[in-house]
Simulated scan of single mutants.
Amino acid sequence: MNDSLSQDTELSAMSLAEILKALPHRYPFLMIDKIIKINGDETAVGIKNVTYNEPIFQGHFPGNPIFPGVLIIEGMAQTAGAIVIKHDANEGGKNVVLMLGVDKAKFRKPAGPGDIIEFHIAKIQRRRNVGRYEAKAIVDGTIIAEAEITAMIVKADQ
Results as ranks from 00 to 15, higher is better:
M99Y: 05
G59M: 05
F61T: 10
L11V: 12
I85M: 08
A82P: 07
K34T: 08
I138S: 07
L30Q: 00
P110W: 14
N39L: 03
Y27P: 03
I138Q: 01
N39S: 15
M1H: 11
A122M: 03
R108K: 15
K37M: 09
N39P: 00
I143E: 14
H25Q: 13
A82E: 05
T51E: 08
I121K: 00
A145W: 06
G40H: 07
A135R: 04
D140Y: 00
L23P: 08
R127V: 15
N53D: 11
E18C: 09
G131R: 09
A105W: 08
I116P: 00
G63Y: 10
I56C: 07
K106P: 00
P24N: 02
I83W: 02
N64L: 06
K86S: 11
G63W: 14
V45P: 05
P110K: 08
M14A: 12
I116L: 10
V45F: 02
Y27V: 04
P55T: 12
F67S: 08
K123H: 08
R128I: 01
D33E: 06
E134M: 13
I73V: 15
S4A: 12
I66E: 05
I56P: 04
M31A: 07
D41P: 09
Q58T: 05
Q78T: 14
H60I: 04
I124Y: 03
A137W: 10
T43Y: 01
K106W: 01
K94V: 06
I138M: 13
E134G: 12
V45Q: 14
A82D: 03
A82G: 03
G59Q: 01
K155E: 10
T43P: 00
H60E: 07
L71V: 04
Q58G: 06
Q125V: 02
Y52S: 13
I149R: 00
L11G: 04
D103M: 08
D88C: 02
N64K: 12
G112T: 05
A156P: 10
E10V: 15
E54Q: 06
E54K: 05
I85P: 07
N95I: 01
E42I: 12
R128S: 14
E10L: 15
V102I: 15
Q158R: 13
